[in-house]
Design a protein around this nucleic acid. Structure first.
Lengths: 154, 154
DNA sequence: ATACATTTAATGTAGAAACATCTATTAGTG
DNA sequence: CACTAATAGATGTTTCTACATTAAATGTAT
């Protein structure tokens, strides 16, 4: 459905306003779809994001602050997200030797197993994007990167 | 900055995964920017969304359920958002004559005045999109519409 | 008309986000 | 070295979100 129908707004100030609203609307929609898939596995999109980052370390420990840097949502409280993963035995935590302020986090076998179960969902989810070509996808990614560029402007 | 740098991920499974992450990351970034602008006026993006919808009615009352339909975030609790606007004298509420279950909501002069103050911020915010052409904006909007199409697929 | 289902909005509640604060540790400077 | 600043992560608090439930009004079917 078109964004016009979805939010019942016939006119937009400009194609840019329309795009801004569409970006927000579509992302909320995508997140909701993801939330739905994950629900039966008792994991939130944010927790999944952390797990995915942990797997990306391929066995190496990673500090909480470095997880935050890699998060999609920088303002999320990584400490508490890790707590949740710990409580479910999806991650392990140990104090870092070289810097005793820091905490090393590693994914557990159980965490890896859960990701393996979730992978097909994510792939399906990403396959929605197959309606465009790889080149188009790259192009739009480049445009989004550009949008975030002039930090000092707004 | 590129999404690779922003979330410190060098490789992506596909251009589609990259686009999916970029969409989520960019939207969170946009929302954060909006939140920052609104903060000094003591209004949240969600409350602003409702106010904008009320203004769009051009003086006509609108039911709570119809506001929800027009919201970017369908799962938000419109009842309580309207409460907040009421408490700040930005909206008025009166029971609907034709259906006594329903409640009519109207924006106040004070609400309109606040929107007038916020408009320039929103315009600046939307002007970020000027780095792409109107045609490109329409193109991306069309793609986002398409993404949401096969409801039954994922 | 009665009974049951649906709709509309409000409310209760658990959990999460946003933001500030606190403690421990490390880094930097005179 | 002593002192201050900076950093890492945990925690407290308030607000918001997500979800379920409730209450009243309306719609529908027999």
């Amino acid at each position: 459905m078109s964004i016009e129908t979805d939010i019942k707004q016939k006119k937009f100030r400009s194609p840019f306003q329309k795009l801004a609203l569409n970006l927000m609307y579509t992302t909320k929609w995508l997140e909701y779809k993801q939330l739905e898939s994950f629900k039966e596995y008792d994991i939130t999109p944010q927790q999944y994001n952390v797990l995915r980052i942990l797997r990306g370390q391929q066995g190496n420990p990673i500090k909480v602050s470095d997880i935050t840097e890699r998060m999609l949502d920088k303002s999320s409280n990584t400490s508490r997200l890790v707590d949740k993963l710990l409580a479910k035995n999806l991650a392990k935590r140990s104090s870092c030797e070289s810097d005793r302020r820091a905490v090393d986090v590693v994914i557990t076998e159980e965490g890896l197993a859960l990701l393996k179960v979730l992978d097909p969902f994510i792939e399906d989810w990403e396959n929605r994007f197959n309606i465009i070509s790889e080149e188009e996808a790259e192009q739009i990614s480049a445009l989004l990167d550009k949008l975030r560029e002039n930090e000092n402007q707004a």
